[in-house]
Design a protein around this nucleic acid. Structure first.
Lengths: 146, 146
DNA sequence: TTTAGTGCAAAGGCTTTGCAGATGT
DNA sequence: ACATCTGCAAAGCCTTTGCACTAAA
């Protein structure tokens, strides 16, 4: 009676591939798995090392190519803080991208609050904008570094 | 009777230089001016072209070096969206870093709302965190692209 | 005059691309 | 079978660095 709504990251990816006539390969599975399982904010190099450990022949370029696909379909987002390397962020908690970021030690605390959904809709409505998702980053100092 | 509180971007920069025993040069002035005057989210190349027009001998490396200083003292922030080039964002509206970003055309609408200040303090308080500033990005589709 | 800054060019570091062989569909 | 993928290595693109000269303080 109804289509399965694509909700799981894996489904989103597979559907995206299908929609573009792309194929699903062993390497794609491995990279997707590693990415989704990873700690937050993984670098390309970290991801490469993880997959290369299981699949030593896998190439760096393949990681890049697939990370680009993951970004295109909305599963990966780049973030860069200060001089740190670029990192890719997996989709946490179904659209919760709210972070407290320590300016000193770089620690990132993930938080969540409903208020922001309302705020999002309110701001969007005021600017003829259809919101899809948001990202909130609060910079400051964590308990240890204060 | 009282010190001038460093508030203007220019003062922040000059004080930062002083504090580190660095010098103020013609090139620094030009780059700072161009950066502060620039449209939002300028790329290194765009900034280079602006200053190089006024001062043809000025080198690319100098722009980079000074952009790094601007970042170190908190005046410049890197942002990257999708496959776009890295951009540097000047400090707008005294700490307002709230954007509506169109997923299709890439347009960035700057917005501002007080609610978020409260939200920031609330979230920070709940995690033993001392907030300094925030950045909110709402992704979606603008009126034209909807 | 002393030390940091600049410009240039070379070096680095990371991402993308070209190609031949491998592999989903 | 046919078009896409992969792995490798080369090419590209920015950013950073080394050095001799210039210029703030």
């Amino acid at each position: 009676m109804r289509e399965v709504i694509e909700k799981e990251p894996r489904d989103i990816f597979v559907n995206y591939l299908k929609g573009k006539g792309l194929r699903n390969t062993r390497q794609r599975e491995e990279i997707l798995d590693a990415f989704l399982t990873a700690k937050r904010h993984i670098t390309v190099e970290e991801l490469y090392k993880i997959v290369a450990k299981k699949d030593p022949g896998l190439g760096y370029a393949t990681v890049h190519r697939n990370l680009n696909l993951l970004r295109e379909c909305g599963l990966a987002e780049e973030i860069k803080i200060g001089k740190q390397k670029m990192r890719f962020e997996p989709p946490f908690g179904h659209g919760h991208h709210d972070h407290l970021i320590c300016l000193k030690c770089g620690q990132i605390i993930e938080v969540s609050d409903e208020t922001i959904e309302h705020l999002q809709n309110k701001l969007a409505a005021a600017h003829d904008f259809a919101p899809v998702k948001h990202k909130l980053e609060i910079y400051g100092y964590c308990g240890k570094c204060r």
